[in-house]
Structure formats: C-alpha cells, structure tokens
Amino acid sequence: MNVFRLAGDMTHLLSIIILLLKIRATKSCTGISLKTQELYVIVFLTRYLDLFTKYISFYNTTMKLVFLGTSISIVWYMRYHKVVKQTYNKDQDTFRHYFLAIPCFLLALLIHHEFTVIEVLWTFSIYLEAVAILPQLVLLQRSRNIDNLTGNYVFLLGAYRALYLVNWVYRYFTENHLVRWIPWLSGLVQTTLYADFFYYYIKSWKNNEKLQLPA
C-alpha cells in the first residue's frame, strides 16, 4: 500500500467520523441526504461480498467492516433515532434512488471484467459510488445554510477519491503497469462531480466566509 492510498482511506474514514460526530453531538442531520447515505450502504454491501470469499489483510477486512457498520448506523440514526430523524430535510431531499441505481446496474451488466455475480455487483458498486453523491449535492444547493461539519464532510468525501486517482497513477508506474479502466474512469467521474463544490468550499475557506452554493 502506498501513501496516497492510505491518505485516501484515512480521508474517507475521517469524513464518516465527522458525519457521525455531527449526528451524535448535535443530535441533528440537517443538510445530510438520506438518499446518498442509503446509496452508500448499497455500495458497501455489494462491494464487500468478498469478505466471505477472500482474505486480503487484517487492515482490509477491518476497514470494510467499519465502512459497513458506520454507513448502516448513519442510516439508522437518520431514519429511526427519535430526535435525529426530526431534523432530516425530507422535503428537500427528493432525488430518486432508482434514477441512479438502475442505470448503474444495467451498465454493470453490460460493462464488467468477468460475468460472475460477485464481479458484476462489484462493478455496480463502483459505478454507483461515482454518482451516489448527487442527492447530497442537490440538497446542499437547496440549503441556504450549510454548517461547517457538513461542508467538511462533503469535502473529505470528495478528496478521498481524488487521492485514490493519484494512487492509481502511482500503482500504474510501480506495479507492472496494472490497467484498471472501470475504477479509473468511474473515480474520475466521481471526482469531477465534486469540482464545483471544491471551488466554492476553497473560496469560502480563503475568504473566511460561510459556505454557500449558488442556486
């Protein structure tokens, strides 16, 4: 494992910790899209099926279990916690899951490395992860008031895939020119979706202003 990959994983983990911290400490999930969080549960469930079939390392297994556990608990808080669920912006979080999930699944059926259940579901999870942030970005654009924790959460979540992109370039040159089109292109799409958000996040940080996305 190289330093970019590790930095990417740590950024991803930190983003989730910040989100859980926000939910637990402030008992509020304002500005967080339940749609996006549910899509992440689907992403992790379909990607980590290999937990049962293949052992890579202690680190790998632990991180997979942490991502599964935390994403499920975030959804649980937002749907069922009696205080937190009342702060959910249901009326603004209107993006439909299946607009993203169905095309991703069809694409995974068409474009994959190997036609097996595990491989197609893994590919589906890669495609779905690339676009799962869309409901969250739409919700942010509708929110007049984005709190710091939510802003930092989305920033770190975007930064994680950008660091993975650097990791893939590094691996290409250090590991026998390993070519992996599916995650590369999906990761590129995923990072590009954040470009606009990154721009306003950095701008508000430099000018010491409150983050607000133009409608």
């Binding site: 990959r5 994983d9 991803h12 290999d50 293949k54 890579i56 390392s57 790998n60 991180m63 997979k64 991502f67 490395h113 190997e114 491989e119 893994w122 993975y164 020119h177 390993l178 070519v179 992996r180 089109w181 599916i182 995650p183």
Partner: peptide, 10 residues
C-alpha cells in the same frame, strides 16, 4: 490491455 481484478482496495 486486460484489466486485472485486484480487489485489494476499499
């Protein structure tokens, strides 16, 4: 080139 299905990432 063939894509290697290395699944060592998260």
């Amino acid at each position: 080139p063939e894509e290697k299905a290395t699944k060592d990432e998260l």
